[in-house]
Write a protein that binds this DNA or RNA. Structure first.
Lengths: 195, 195
DNA sequence: ATTTTGCGAACGAACAGTCATTCGTATTTT
DNA sequence: AAAATACGAATGACTGTTCGTTCGCAAAAT
């Protein structure tokens, strides 16, 4: 059964996430993973069902975080501007809390097999449509500029995609510093306002 | 000799870029590619040297576009704000002119083998450092807000990464429309200025 | 004019290697 | 004793690539 400090299953998922991030899912072999975990390839079929089960867990666990986060945002009474701020914070939180799974979630979902691929895409579509509604609402209340909502959506979502590479920049920047700077950047742009 | 309308080599590169975009480099087999081109797997070794040669060409051709574009921007006499605008336009141009190779350039370069991987990363580092200098200069002249330059760099670069998925959104938006909206969005943010 | 030579393009077959996974069995843990 | 965990060996499928060969066409030689 699950050994105490961290179950072997958890270790497998974590090491796998790192490998998937670094090499991608198809280029990561079970032998690579075995070596990392300190097991022979045949051995972790006592713990997991298949290679894809790992990918599925990572993808859908991350997806759930976004789904839950979106629900919370939608349930609050807040201006659209505030909701957008909360969503940006949500993306930053997910990306920084668990950077490896966030990467896999972002880039490796396409290697899911059916029907999981369709299920995942449905979750994603749902999330994006909620996101879109907030942007559209913000435009109609004149909180936001009149810019194509889907263009705004994709720009914002993707602008946060570098966060989970975590190693390169911003070692010295605090998390809240990053949050605040990013929100200012996305809401008001790089250009300095002339007041 | 090179048959006229499009040489077979060109066809191979183009079909390969599409497959690499859709399935990723490691998940794309030479047999997949063969079927697309209408050749048997063994046959295109008359045209190309190896699978990786295709990846190399795509990556370094795209890299060259950015390098050349950056040189042009650096050579102009312009304010840092104007230079940043030009760089954003450059990214949009590359991403929309040849969306498939742009995707490969963005996501599949890590599968390059040495020494090509190091060469590629050197080009990239060089590009980014020029980009950073412009942002830093803009901050010191007070054209830009005082936000961590590398944070601005990665946000901008990545915010344009969805463009090459081309299919999903913005079918009806013209290219110049997209350009203008994006520049406004990145320079001045989503929020509507209260004037 | 006819034959010979050369060559790029395409092929089927086969290569050695790797892939994820399964099975039977041993070892360890409970 | 029972259950969970680990292993070596083997599986069939797939990987990129090479080999020897063939076909059609163009240039060269007769």
């Amino acid at each position: 059964m699950s050994s105490n400090p961290k179950s072997k299953k958890q270790i497998i998922f974590q090491e796998a996430a790192e490998l998937f991030r670094d090499k991608g899912y198809p280029a990561t072999s079970m032998r690579d993973l075995a070596e990392r975990v300190g097991l022979k390839p045949s051995s972790f079929y006592s713990h997991i069902k298949s290679k894809e089960e790992i990918l599925q867990k990572i993808c859908f666990d991350s997806a759930e975080k976004f789904t839950i986060g979106m629900k919370e945002v939608c349930d609050t009474e807040a201006t659209n501007k505030e909701k957008l701020q909360l969503l940006i914070r949500l993306h930053i939180k997910v990306a920084t809390e668990d950077p490896t799974t966030a990467t896999v979630f972002n880039d490796e979902w396409r290697h899911l097999s059916e029907p999981h691929l369709s299920n995942f895409l449905a979750l994603r579509r749902d999330y994006e449509s909620h996101f879109l509604k907030i942007i559209e609402a913000g435009i109609s209340t004149q909180e936001f500029k009149q810019i194509s909502p889907s263009l705004v959506l994709y720009t914002i979502i993707n602008s946060l995609r570098w966060l989970h590479f975590a190693n390169k920049p911003t070692k010295e920047l605090s998390a809240t510093q990053i949050e605040n700077d990013l929100i200012q950047l996305l809401l008001q742009g790089v250009e300095k306002n002339v007041l």
